[in-house]
Amino acid sequence: MGAGFWIIYIVIIVAFMYFLMIRPQKKQKQKQAELFSNMAIGDSVLTTSGFYGVIIDITEDTVIVEFGSNKNCRIPMQKSAIVQIEKPNAE
């Protein structure tokens, strides 16, 4: 087995690692950045802990989310804790 074989073998392994590990992470980060850029006050959100709430304030890296119907539970959390956003119906 020559040196050319080993070089091709290493290139194939690196390409395989790229397509299985690095590329999906980049897509996930891009999707998350797009999600955060579309975030607005009044949007309903789902957090990583499974709670549903409504955004009442947004800062650079945190959001204040209001949980429940009594309007007394307001919790500041990092934007990264938000998994899903649902826009309110415009009717």
Rank of each mutant, 00 (worst) to 15 (best):
Y18S: 13
I12Q: 07
S80P: 05
I7G: 01
I10V: 14
V45Q: 00
F36N: 03
I41P: 03
Q30L: 12
G2I: 00
R74H: 06
S49F: 04
K31D: 07
E34N: 08
A40W: 04
F36H: 00
T47Y: 07
I64S: 07
Q78I: 11
T48L: 09
Q84H: 08
L46W: 12
A3C: 08
M39Y: 09
W6T: 11
F36W: 01
Q28N: 07
W6S: 04
A90C: 14
K79W: 00
Q25F: 10
Q28E: 14
F51P: 02
L20H: 12
Q78K: 12
V45L: 04
I7Y: 02
N70Y: 14
V83G: 02
Y9S: 13
W6F: 09
L20M: 10
T48E: 14
R74V: 06
S44H: 06
A3K: 05
I85Y: 04
R23C: 07
Q32D: 11
E60F: 11
I58G: 00
Q32L: 10
A33F: 03
V63H: 03
F67R: 05
G2A: 02
A40D: 12
Q78R: 12
K29W: 13
N38G: 05
I75V: 15
D43K: 00
M1V: 00
G42T: 00
A90I: 13
S44K: 10
I56L: 08
E86M: 06
G4Q: 05
N70F: 12
Y9K: 11
I58W: 00
I12K: 01
E91S: 10
I8L: 12
E60Q: 15
E66H: 11
E66V: 10
S44T: 06
I22D: 12
V45W: 05
V14Y: 06
K87R: 07
I82M: 01
A81T: 12
V54E: 15
R74L: 02
D57E: 13
K87I: 04
S44F: 15
V54H: 10
S37W: 01
F36L: 08
A33G: 00
L35E: 03
S80N: 11
V45C: 03
G2Q: 03
A33T: 03
A3H: 13
N89G: 01
A3I: 11
T62N: 09
E60N: 14
A3P: 00
N38H: 09
T47E: 02
F5R: 09
T62Y: 08
Y52N: 13
G4C: 00
Q84D: 05
M17C: 15
A81R: 12
T62D: 06
A15P: 01
I56A: 08
V65S: 04
A40M: 07
P88F: 02
G68L: 14
E91W: 06
M1P: 01
G2S: 03
P88S: 07
Q25K: 15
T48V: 09
V63F: 08
I82H: 02
V83K: 06
E91M: 12
Q78D: 13
M17H: 07
C73W: 13
I10G: 04
I64K: 08
K27C: 08
Y18F: 15
S49Y: 05
K27G: 03
V65K: 01
V83N: 08
S69W: 09
Y18E: 09
I41G: 06
T59K: 15
E66W: 05
G50Q: 09
